[in-house]
Design a protein around this nucleic acid. Structure first.
Lengths: 185, 185
DNA sequence: TAGCACTTTCAGATATTTCTGAAATTCATG
DNA sequence: CATGAATTTCAGAAATATCTGAAAGTGCTA
C-alpha cells in the first residue's frame, strides 16, 4: 500500500469529482467507465499507486483493477514503476496532457482507423477498378458508389496521416499547432 | 417504399460490407451500432430512403429505425426530405464527408467537451482560488492538484475552441487545413 | 524446491445498453 | 370530425459489455 500523508478533505472530494467526470467522459467515447476512472485516479493523484490503492479508492475487484491497469499500460498512458524494498508493482500516469493526447491518438488510429481503412479499400475493390484504367465509363450507380467510397477513404487517410504526424511531434510543438488552429487562419 | 431500379449484386454486397464496417467503427467510438449502420446505408446509397427501406435492408424494428433516424437528424448529418405525392418522410445523408466531419465535431464538442469543461472548472473552484490572488503559497499537495487540473482544462479548452473554429470553416478550407497537418511543418 | 507475496485469468454473475412491437399520437384528407 | 397512413414512444425483452472472485500462474527468497 502506498504510504499516505494526511490529505485535506476538500482535496479528496475534488479528486473524487474529477474521477467521476473523467469516467463519464470516457464512457461516451467508447472507453469503459472503470478504465477511465482508474486513469483519472492515477492522473489526479500524480504519484504511483498500486493495485490495492485503486481497488480501495474506486471500490472495484482485484480482477477489474488488474485488467484496467494492464489496459492503460497497453495504451501507453500509464507506466509500471517499482519501489525499492517492495515487491508490488506501482502504476503512474503520464503527467503531460499533450503526451497523453499523442498516445491516445496513436492508439485509436492504429486500432480503429487502420482496420476501417483496410476494409474500405477491400470494399472499393469489390466493384472493379476505377475507370481511370480503361476508357469505358462505369454505369452511373457504380460511379456514384465509387465516388462516395473514395471520399470516405480520403477522409480516413487524412486522419491516419494526421495522427501519425501529430503523435511524433514534440509536445510543445503539438500544443502550439493545436492552439494555432483555435485562431483565425 | 422508394422506387428501386435493378442494382448489380456486387454493388449490394459492397454496400452491405460498407454498412458493417461503418457500424463496427461507430460502435468503438461510442455510437450505437445500428445508428451508425443506418447512417452508412443512407450515405452509401446516396439517395433518400424511408423508414421501411431501412427496416427491410437492416432487418431492424420500426421503433429502432425511427429512433435511429431521429438521432441522425438531431446530429445534423441526415435531413428529412419529402417526395411529392407521398405522405412518407424520406431521409438523406449529408454527402460531403468534410461537412459530415464538421457536424460530428460540433455535436461532440457540445455534448461531451462542454459539460466536462464545466465540471472541471467547478472542481477547480472546490479547492480555493489559485495562489495568483494572494501572496500565501498553497500547500504542495494542493498546488500539484491545481496544476494537473489546469493542464487538463487547458487541453479541453483548446479542443472546444478548435472544434468551434474548424466547424465554421468552409469545407474546402477545412480539407486544406487538415491535409496541411499531414505534412512536415 | 517449498513457501509466500503478488498478479493474471476467465467462467459465470451483474449491470448497462440497445432493440422490439404494440399502443398512442400526429396529421393530411374526404 | 372521422378515417387511416405514417410516425413516435416506451415498457419490457434481448443482447452486449463489464465486473467479480476464486483458482491458476509467476517468480522471489530462504
Amino acid at each position: 500500500m502506498a504510504m499516505r500523508r494526511p490529505v485535506p478533505d476538500a482535496l479528496v472530494e475534488a479528486q473524487d469529482r474529477f474521477i467521476a467526470a473523467w469516467g463519464q467522459m470516457g464512457s461516451t467515447w467508447g472507453i469503459s467507465r472503470t478504465m477511465a476512472e482508474v486513469h483519472a485516479l492515477l492522473y489526479i493523484t500524480g504519484e504511483p499507486l498500486c493495485t490495492d490503492d485503486a481497488m480501495e479508492r474506486l471500490e472495484i475487484s482485484r480482477g477489474n483493477a488488474s485488467m484496467s491497469l494492464r489496459a492503460l499500460v497497453d495504451w501507453g498512458i500509464v507506466t509500471r514503476v517499482h519501489k525499492r524494498g517492495d515487491r508490488k508493482e506501482y502504476y503512474q500516469a503520464e503527467q503531460d496532457v499533450w503526451s497523453l493526447l499523442q498516445a491516445v491518438v496513436r492508439q485509436r488510429v492504429k486500432r480503429e482507423i487502420h482496420p476501417a481503412l483496410a476494409s474500405l479499400c477491400e470494399i472499393r475493390d469489390m466493384t472493379g477498378p476505377g475507370n481511370a484504367t480503361n476508357g469505358r465509363p462505369e454505369p452511373e450507380a457504380i460511379a456514384g458508389h465509387h465516388a462516395r467510397l473514395d471520399a470516405m477513404i480520403e477522409l480516413l487517410r487524412t486522419f491516419d496521416q494526421m495522427g501519425e504526424r501529430l503523435s511524433e511531434l514534440p509536445t510543445d510543438e503539438l500544443r502550439t499547432t493545436a492552439q494555432a488552429l483555435t485562431r483565425e487562419t
